[in-house]
């Protein structure tokens, strides 16, 4: 029992130390640019966790981040790196606005599910190209999915400046989707929406798929040893290619939720840093979805808190990015240290 306790502590210790490291370096950074570090800490925490309103902001950040992390984790379990989740996210958003503009008068009961399914379908279709290239020609999926990201950026630019362009804003952005397509809120102000519930549900389905079904078994088997999987009758190449398509569906869902739950339109640049940030929880905790969720939430807290720092203390935007990057580096360091200690 005691040994177990000390094991837990020795595993957690690097993470605690790295967290303290982040806190210290944030303080130093703030002091260097002439701000009061303790004021900074207070704002960071209160603006992300301090009130129901700020918590809801954090959760709004958490939803796409967690889904994007799942979109990366599913293929990762099959040994594939879906760095294209960003482009798939954008395609999901394109799918969502497409449904709302092509079929503007559907009742919500049909319309919203259709919008979400369209998001997943568009996201998946975007991944079919890299998946096929991987399956047929063994083209490295990292290269091909990144390339697809660039195409996605310009596709979004095309859609947001095309016929659906909203002329009232001086920015590449579409008109708003109809109110029949907007995800209902559970709490009205601020919005805590159905998006969170869909996200939790999606995570539960992913968990069930990966750990309870034969298809999920094959996914993990291919990730563990593609050659042995092949020898024992699993079509390794097909499974690993399909894993990217499956992950892409989740990324597409994230894009659709972002449109229907938060932005209500397709906007150029709406992917933010979600693609890159999502790699962190996925890579740190690939084997545990709960871990992916916790780390995603943690990152959402920092993300929300540092953007408040910009607003309240006038801290430059770059400092916020710097803090996030530091955090990621230190978490990875902690993981590396904990890993070598096991």
């Amino acid at each position: 029992m005691k040994a177990q306790q000390s094991l837990v502590i020795s595993k957690l210790l690097p993470y605690i130390l790295s967290f303290l490291g982040v806190v210290a370096s944030v303080g130093i950074l703030l002091a260097l640019i002439g701000k009061n570090p303790f004021e900074g800490y207070r704002i960071l925490l209160s603006s992300s966790l301090g009130s129901p309103g700020s918590l809801s902001l954090t959760l709004l950040d958490f939803v796409p981040l967690f889904l994007m992390a799942l979109a990366f984790v599913v293929p990762l379990r099959a040994g594939k790196y879906n760095v294209g989740n960003e482009g798939q996210f954008l395609l999901g958003a394109v799918g969502a606005v497409t449904v709302s503009f092509v079929l503007p008068n559907l009742p919500s009961v049909i319309g919203i599910p259709l919008l979400l399914v369209a998001g997943m379908a568009f996201g998946s279709l975007w991944a079919v190209v890299p998946a096929f290239l991987l399956y047929r020609f063994r083209v490295n999926e990292i290269v091909s999915t990144i390339s697809m990201n660039f195409i996605a950026y310009y596709l979004v630019l095309f859609v947001t400046t095309g016929p659906w362009h909203n002329p009232l804003v001086g920015y590449p952005q579409t008109n708003q989707i109809g109110s029949n397509y907007i995800l209902p809120s559970l709490v009205r102000t601020p919005q805590i929406g159905t998006g969170l519930i869909i996200t939790v549900l999606a995570a539960a389905i992913v968990y069930f798929y990966i750990s309870k079904t034969p298809a999920g078994f094959e996914l993990r088997a291919v990730g563990a040893n593609p050659r042995a999987s092949l020898v024992y009758g699993i079509k390794s190449n097909f499974v690993s290619a399909m894993s990217i398509v499956q992950g892409a569906a989740i990324a597409g869902l994230a894009g659709a939720i972002q449109v229907a739950g938060l932005l209500f339109s397709l906007q150029y640049g709406m992917q933010g840093n979600y693609g890159l940030l999502s790699l962190v929880p996925a890579l740190i905790s690939a084997s545990s979805l709960i871990g992916v969720g916790l780390i995603s939430f943690f990152i959402a807290v920092i993300d929300t808190g540092t953007s408040a720092l910009q607003g309240v203390l006038g801290v430059p935007y770059e400092i916020g990015l710097l803090i996030e990057s530091l955090l990621l580096l230190l978490i990875l360091l902690a993981k590396g240290y904990g890993g070598s200690n096991r």
């Binding site: 034969p214 078994f217 094959e218 993990r220 088997a221 990730g223 563990a224 040893n225 050659r227 042995a228 999987s229 020898v231 024992y232 009758g233």
Partner: peptide, 27 residues
Amino acid sequence: YIPEDRLDDGILPSMTLYENMVLGSHD
């Protein structure tokens, strides 16, 4: 089939004994 190359062709090292035991008849 009992493959010759047990590490490369035979096992899923990061998975459990019981998961390895059913590989091939898992579904």
